[in-house]
Write a protein that binds this DNA or RNA. Sequence first.
RNA 1: GUGGGUGUAGCUCAGUUGGUUAGAGCGCCAGAUUGUGAUUCUGGAGGUCGUGGGUUCAAUUCCCAUCACUCACCCCA
Length: 414
Amino acid sequence: MAALQPVRGTHDLLPEDHRRHRHVIDNAAGVSSLYGYEFMSTPIFEFTQVFKRTLGDTSDVVTKEMYTFTDKGGDEITLRPENTAGVCRAFMSNGLAQHAPVRYFYGGPMFRYERPQKGRLRQFHQIGIELIGAPQPQADIEVIACGAAILDRLGILGRTELELNTLGDTASRTEYRNALVEYFSDHKDSLSEDSRDRLNRNPLRILDSKDEGDRKLIVDAPVFSDYLNQESQEFFATVRQGLDDIGIGYRLNPRLVRGLDYYCHTAFEFTTTELGSQSAVMAGGRYDGLMEMMGGQPTPGVGWAAGIERLSMLATEPEGGARPVALVPMGEAAERQMLKLAETLRHAGVQVDMAFGGNMKKRMKRADKVNASQAVILGDDELARGVVQIKDLATGEQIEAPMDGLAARLAPPM
RNA sequence: GUGGGUGUAGCUCAGUUGGUUAGAGCGCCAGAUUGUGAUUCUGGAGGUCGUGGGUUCAAUUCCCAUCACUCACCCCA
């Protein structure tokens, strides 16, 4: 049995699950296309360096969550834990700087070696958008607005809250980071074990600690706004003004910190209380330093990613698919005729179900099971007269109709 | 990676204070005379009680380990 189990933290997407995923992807792609974002995909694995350089050597994702292996050619390969680095790599590989700014929408599987939980998997799926090549704060506003519109389309915007923060530009952030490290280093003995670890890896995270002792220290810790330079302050003010102007509510959360190194300026997260300890539904921000980190020309970017599993747990149930017409032949001659008819109907756009065998009763049962709207019945008698019986499976009404022109009769209205 | 909970039929769950053949509902299969489903009635199949080890005359039940799921921490989508 163990061998027949899927790998921990991975799931099969059976048709029903897939319908929910597609519902999320289709709506998100549809809405983002209104903002000019076009679907694109990058490979699900990249050279390990693509992620190592961009995510930061100390981030959890890099230190313990990557699925990394050496392939047969000796290359170090990693299954993508997120897609921003891949999209940026693609932007550079394809020389797209000349087309900047570019807008991309993506969706697909991501991989992180984590302990599974509700809304947290080892293979999960994300959708996301990236707006590359636009340094203006208006780009941040557009990206957030697009995300909000998607959540709204999925019927979950009302159950989320937009949290907003600024991480400042690199200069501000570095200065603040240093101040924090200095402050907490002085109180190192009072810090929790987790936070002592954070001090080396990501000191900003300490601000979000749930440990009571830490919280006491945090009260007197340096405040980021004191370290934000003029430019960073203006940038953030413009973003906030824009959100106000288009009526997107948000809550300032100075503790909102990104785990990944490449973020700067705007950081945001749409959160919910409906997913247990996983609160983030859609999260993103600005990553102006990323391309440079990868060895390319400095290029600004903003974007977000959202977990499809999390979204589909919150989204309203999509409607069931179209209902087929069931073909019920009786006898060998009728079966051959039906095979031809089935093709004709399908080419005319009618969804058709025909069992591979069985008597009439079995076929009718199957018609019911596949949720057919109508059954088209053909026996020797009908065959001789060139007609079929059409039975409405909801009402039980049955009428006779000529075989010619059946497609037009059964085809869904345009 | 750390700690708690759970694991009985395809699904949702009873149950066994250790003792012959482990139950229900739903689902599945078959039948209720000739070419009619869903409804109704009758019958049937399906479980090494997650897996491995231990204690015992005897374990699905107690103990240990392991795996999976789940919740929290960590982290994040």
